[in-house]
Design a protein around this nucleic acid. Sequence first.
RNA 1: GGGCCUAUAGCUCAGUUGGUUAGAGCGUCGCGUUUACACCGCGGAUGUCGGGGGUUCGAGUCCCUCUGGGCCCA
Length: 882
Amino acid sequence: MNHAATTPPSQNPPTEPIRPVAQVPDRPSLDGLEDRWSASWGEQDLYAFDATAPRERVFSIDTPPPTASGSLHIGHVFSYTHTDCMARYRRMRGHEVFYPMGWDDNGLPTERRVQNYYGVQVDTSLPFEADFTPPYAGDVPKKHRPTPVSRQNFVQLCLTLAAEDEKSFEQVFRYLGLSVDWAQTYQTISPTSQQTSQRAFLRQLARGEAYQIEAPTLWDVTFQTAVAQAELEDRERDGAYHRISFHGAEGPVFIETTRPELLAACVALVAHPDDERYQGLFGSTVTSPVFGVEVPVLAHPLADPEKGAGIAMICTFGDTTDVTWWRELNLPTRTIIGRDGRILPEAPAAITSAEGLAAYQQLVGLTVFSAQKQTVELLQASGDLHGEPRKITHPVKFYEKGDKPLEIVSSRQWYARNGGRDADLREQLIQRGRELTWHPEFMRSRYENWVDGLAGDWLLSRQRFFGVPFPLWYRLDEAGEVVYDDPLVPSEDRLPIDPSTDVPDGYTEDQRGKPGGFAGDPDVLDTWATSSLTPQLAGRWERDPDFFSRVFPYDVRPQAHDIIRTWLFSTMVRANAEHDSLPWRHAAISGWILDPDRKKMSKSKGNVVTPLGLLQQHGSDAVRYWAASARLGGDTAFDEGQMKIGRRLAIKLLNASKFALSFAGDEQVTLDPAAVTEPLDRAILAQLATVVDTATRAYENYDHARALEVTESFFWTFCDDYLELVKDRAYGSEKFTAEATDSARAALWLALDVLLRLLAPVLPFATEEVWSWWREGSVHRAAWPTSQVLHTAAGDGDPSLVSVAGSALAALRKVKSEAKVSQRTEFASATLLLPEADHEAVRAVLADLRAAGRVAGDLTLGNGTDDVTVDGELLPPPPKNR
RNA sequence: GGGCCUAUAGCUCAGUUGGUUAGAGCGUCGCGUUUACACCGCGGAUGUCGGGGGUUCGAGUCCCUCUGGGCCCA
């Protein structure tokens, strides 16, 4: 583990100016703090990044850009709070924090939202309409048939809606109190991002990392686009094994398949080379039923003897195993499924018999689903379907955003090397993963697991409308056919370009689409191809080299674990290739929010809790408290109870602060360690010194939850025991000397000063509010506390005094509680029974105990156990007021 | 099938490199309107640390194994 703590740039003791007179409200309240302080921070540019800071003083964050055209959910609030706690801690440590925000408005989610919001659909054949008004805006009736619009109009709608969504996101994040520098915002679709993305692609192309190839490709028939491995997910689906007979020289050969509709696309049968049942068949041929195509029987180790009949038909293409077989066994291609998911009009050339062609005609134009039914009927008619289909459930590959099973079609696509076909590169990327410090550590195995399992290179091209275009054109030969081999590439200074409107050098617009002319690449880049460049986008790569050198490689990438295989991995691939470096030093991986049933929270569950509503209901500090209570990597229950606790903590902080500051009256609060003379006061500060050290160590180790826990737990002891014990003394009761009173006040103020700083990252609003009562400037630009001042004040004070005194106080309270009388009831006299070893400690705080326990007469000590008890005489309870 | 995480009070979770009698908050029950705080305070009760085995003077903690939950990959 890499625990190397960053050397703090400044370790000055706190010197932030103290106001001459503290202004404490009569009734402190959390209400309205979010609006007031977020506005104030904005006006002051409190979180502005100073781009002149030297790299070693910069702490840079590669913030996840939320998908602008979705909606923020509670998971965003959760993980962004983790990041913000880090950012605020680092800022207080004296780092210049680079904390940008991005909006991921590029890609399919935006397309989908625009379609649904405006009730439109792209028709690429339509021309641009300058004054186009969409038929609806968010109020599309159910029965509305999408209005066709041109691609350019559609893109404009995407940009318009994304901009609106971004505004509302920013509002939520400001309300949440994220200390983002809002001047550093970027969008993944902006011209600058397109330029960066296209530039990076051209570099990949120049280095030979990007290439195009005609190959079987996973295809989503709904979205009409190719899909990459990283976007796949398996879903359990019902299916059925159909037992089908092929006709061999020695009699029928039975295979079992879940996809009988692909029979016309069958190119071979395959069994495991060791499978004794089929030894005699290897090398022979059989004829497919219904279509009458002769196919070979082959051996391949991927054939699973346990599965079905142990012999399978290979079709082009039913699944990824078919693709492997097809490639490794050099099989022909017989495509029957089109890109719309329907059976193609043209039968494969291998089907030659009249019966076969007639049968194929019955399938043409059918969906996969209907084609299956039809094929089954054909098989039944020919007597080649045996028995009832045997129902099973099996994993089927889906596009993660789609709802129809993926098909595999052969198509020309762009790919980028990512180690999927290259053991050296793969090893290099795994090594990069080991250079990265993961929080928590075990998340690295997710990464390695993914890299190890890569099945091929990164599919870059998408057949969509809204996205970053490929910055390429192709020559058209004399027949008007596209010449793919030698794309026309723009120089980098022309970027960004749109090949559908821009013209390659040496050509004119009127040559577009003409024989001997050119054609633009119609595709857009995978959104991850742009999102993998967030360090470069936010860091102004190639646009401002000085700026870039101050932020890159970044200090930390915060994100959730579900996108390790996509965002994290692809960013590693790009940085490794382009910069020969890690993109960041640390990866801080947040867990997920689970609903009370321990399931991942999702919109489809109909959970209508909006983040803003939640923040308004409980207060931002309260919600942040809930989020910050969870350590990195831990999946966490959505728990409003925890938010209520956070709210109480924030309120308690206001009230305890008011109490401590009230003792100054019209005098200036002082932070004078020398004034702390009483043993109990020194004890509490000694304990707080340990808290500071522990919390600091925790933050250095990206463990905000531990820092909060130790601080919070101290704070409650501080309030419940310490404040009660010193109350009388701090008020200046005549039972105490002026020096003793001053000691209590000094300790309270010193403790408050430190506590506000410790809690500032988690509770930015309440701490800023209190800070403003008595300090100049913002607590969020104040120095993180060190234990030094506290040690000075505590001297040789024994921190264990606090707990000894606390349990003695609890024993006194318990007597009253059990006697069912008010805590104001006085003891005539009392004896504390506790271990003799503790007597000396308790004697040191006896006066405070007498006051807090309201012992009118003597308070003496006797021998007892750790479980402190009291032998005492209570006076009659005081009369009830009012 | 391979891998990762997780199992501690009714609930949510802490428990450092093994070290007496296992903690916190919530909830619950009882009491209390005390001039920081009723968005409050005080006090009480609550556990075979998932099961089994092992290492050790000593295991919630380390090892093995079984079981449950969650996730990633195939």
